[in-house]
Design a protein around this nucleic acid. Structure first.
Lengths: 331, 331
DNA sequence: CGTGTCCTGGTAATCGTTTTCTCGGAAGTT
DNA sequence: AACTTCCGAGAAAACGATTACCAGGACACG
C-alpha cells in the first residue's frame, strides 16, 4: 500500500502539502496541486482510512442494528437509513441482532469501539446495550422500539392503536373470537400490539381474552406452533391478529396444512405490508407501517444530532394504516 | 473517551503492560493483571478501534456488496456470510449497490480505503470495480456472478442449466410457447438464464424465440411492464420463465390486473424460493438457489484466503433445483 | 530603507494503540 | 561466588494520516 510519504516524495513536496491538496484545503500553488495529483494518480494512492479516522477523531460511518435482515420491515428501514446517510457522505454498517440481547450488546460494543459517528438501533427491549450507549458520548437513535432509560431520540409507530383498530376491524367484519399471536414478553412492540388487541376487544365488549393469546419469537417457526396450539384448543379463535409479517407466513402455512382458508375459515390481519402481501392466497389484510420513513426520519435525526452537540431528546411517532384485503373477509 | 494511558496510570503500570493484559498476551504477573483489569473496568475503558487497526495494519471486518437488500435471495446470502464471519470474529458491513456500477465502484473504493480484511461482492458485471480490486492486495470473492478479469475466488450457481431445466419443465407440462423475462444486458446471471431458456427451447424443437423475450431491471416495476408488453403482443407466450423473485411479484401483479391466473392461463416458473413462494395464489413454481450456502461457502473461501496468502483462484459452482408447484400446471 | 503583514509550504507534534528493544533482577549452573 | 540465561515489564518507535506552528519571501507602508 502506498502512503502519503511516497506521494510527497514523488511530487517533490511535503506530506502536509499532499494532505492539503487531497482535502481541497487552503490555497496551494496550482502547479504543486497538479504535481501532487498526478503523483497520487500514478501511484494509485488511496488514503489509509484508519489512520485518517484516528487523527480526525471521527469515522464517517453509522451503525444500524436491527433484529432480522430477512424481514422486509427491517430491510425497508435499512434502505431509508442508507438513502439519507449516503447522501450525507456516511456509510452504513448493518448488523443483525437476531433479537438476542447478547448479540445486540456485542454489536453496540464494537460500534462504540470502532468510534462510529452514530448508532441507530431497534432494541430488543430487555437488558439491551442501553448502559453502554448512555455511558458513551456517541449519538444514537432508537427505531421502532423505545430504549428503556438512556436518552437519545426515538422514532416509533403508533402500533398500539393500529392493533386496536385491526382488532375492531375483525369484529366489524363479523368475526366473534379474535385471537392474537404476538412476540416475546418484554419486547415493546409485542406488548403494545397485544395491548392494542386487548383494548380492541374491550371496546367491543369482549373480555375473556387471555386464552386466545399466544406469544412466540418473531419468526415463522414459532408462529406455526402458536397457530397450531390456538386452533387445536377447545374453543379456538375464529380470527387472528398476527404481530408481524414473518409470523404471518408461518400462520398461513399452518392454515394451509389444516385445510383452512384465511378469511373464509379464520380471519386474519397481520402487521407489515410486504410486497407479497397482496398476492398471497388469499390476499392478506395488513397494518402497513411506514418502514422506509422510520429509516429516513431516524437517520436524519441522527445526523442532526451528530452535527450540533446536545439538544433535548425527541420522540417521533408515525402512524400506521390498515389495508383490508380478503383475509379479513368471512366466507 | 478514556485511553490506555489513563488505565496504565491508574493501575500504576506502563501502557505496554496494559496492552498485553488486554490482549491476553505473554505472561504478566497475576497481580498486575488484576490491577489492570480493575482499572480498565472502573474507567469503562474501551480500546480505540481505529488506532488499533492502524497499528495492527488490519481490520477485522469483511465488506459484503450486494445489489439489493430487499431481495430475499441476497438477504439469505448475507445471513450465510454473517454466520460464518461472525463465528470467526469478523464483522460484516453490508452495502447496497442497487446494481449501479458507479455505486458499486464507490463501495469497493471505500472498502479498500478502510482497509477491510476482505471483500465479498456480487458484481453487476459491467465495468465493476474489478481494476480497483485486482490492483489492491486485499482478498476478495465474487458471489453469484463472475468478476470479469481480476482473480479472486468465485461462487456461482449453475443457473444456465437450471433455466434450461425449468423451460423444459414448462413444455413437458404442456405449455407451447414459453416466454422469458430476464435481467439487463451484460449482467451475467441475466445472460445465463436467457441462454438456458433458449437452450431449453431448442432441446424441445422450438426456435422462433427472441420475440418472446424481454429484458428489464431486476425489479418489480420493470417486470410489470415487460409482462404487459409480452402479453399484449399478437402471439403472446402461454408461459413465462422469470429471472428472479422480485420480478416474479411484478409479473403476478400484472397477471392479476389482467384477470389471468398463473398456471391455468399462463404458466410460470421464477428463480429463487422465497419464504412466501409457496403461499402465493397460486403457489409459485421456482428454481431454488442455495443462497445461504453461497454466503457460507463464499465467506469460508474468503477467510481461507485471508489466512494464507495466495493460492490459485477457485470457482465453486453450486446447483439449483426445480420446485414444481401449481403455477406451472395448466388448467 | 527598515519593519510589519500576509501568504505559502515545510517541520514536527499528535491521534491511541501494538510491539520491538532493552534492561534489571532472579534463577540456574559450574 | 561468578557467570550465563531467562523472564517480566518499561521506554520508545512505529502505524499513516492531519494540522498547529513556524520560517522565509514578497509586498506595502511609513
Amino acid at each position: 500500500m502506498t502512503t502519503i510519504n511516497e506521494v510527497a516524495e514523488r511530487a517533490g513536496v511535503s506530506t502536509a502539502t499532499v494532505s492539503r491538496v487531497l482535502n481541497g484545503k487552503d490555497t496551494v500553488d496550482s502547479e504543486l496541486v497538479a504535481r501532487v495529483l498526478t503523483a497520487a494518480e500514478e501511484l494509485g494512492y488511496r488514503p489509509n482510512g484508519p489512520a485518517r479516522n484516528l487523527r480526525r477523531q471521527k469515522t464517517p460511518v453509522l451503525a444500524l442494528i436491527i433484529s432480522d435482515v430477512e424481514n422486509p420491515f427491517f430491510t425497508a428501514i435499512s434502505r431509508g437509513v442508507e438513502d439519507v446517510a449516503h447522501s450525507a457522505g456516511y456509510s452504513v454498517v448493518l448488523c443483525n441482532s437476531d433479537d438476542d440481547p447478547d448479540k445486540e450488546r456485542s454489536y453496540v460494543s464494537v460500534a462504540l469501539q470502532e468510534r462510529v459517528a452514530g448508532i441507530l438501533l431497534s432494541p430488543t427491549g430487555r437488558t439491551s446495550g442501553s448502559e453502554l450507549l448512555s455511558g458513551s458520548r456517541i449519538p444514537f437513535v432508537a427505531l421502532d422500539r423505545p430504549l428503556p432509560d438512556a436518552g437519545g431520540d426515538t422514532v416509533l409507530v403508533d402500533t398500539r392503536s393500529a392493533a386496536e383498530q385491526a382488532t375492531r376491524h375483525l369484529v366489524e367484519r363479523g368475526y366473534r373470537r379474535p385471537g392474537c399471536i404476538t412476540g416475546p414478553r418484554g419486547v415493546p412492540t409485542a406488548e403494545e400490539r397485544l395491548d392494542g388487541y386487548l383494548r380492541g376487544l374491550r371496546a367491543v365488549g369482549q373480555h375473556d381474552s387471555e386464552r386466545l393469546v399466544r406469544r412466540c419469537e418473531f419468526r415463522a417457526a414459532g408462529a406455526r406452533r402458536a397457530a397450531q396450539e390456538l386452533l387445536d384448543t377447545e374453543h379456538p379463535p375464529d380470527s387472528l391478529l398476527v404481530a408481524n409479517n414473518v409470523m404471518a407466513l408461518g400462520v398461513m402455512e399452518t392454515l394451509a396444512e389444516k385445510g383452512l382458508r384465511a378469511g373464509d375459515d379464520v380471519g386474519m390481519v397481520a402487521f407489515d405490508d410486504a410486497p407479497w402481501a397482496g398476492l398471497l392466497d388469499p390476499p392478506l389484510s395488513v397494518v402497513a407501517q411506514p418502514a422506509y420513513d422510520i429509516g429516513t426520519v431516524g437517520a436524519q435525526l441522527l445526523l442532526d444530532r451528530i452535527g450540533e452537540r446536545r439538544r433535548g431528546n425527541t420522540t417521533t411517532t408515525l402512524s400506521a394504516r390498515l389495508i383490508a384485503r380478503a383475509s379479513s373477509h368471512p366466507g
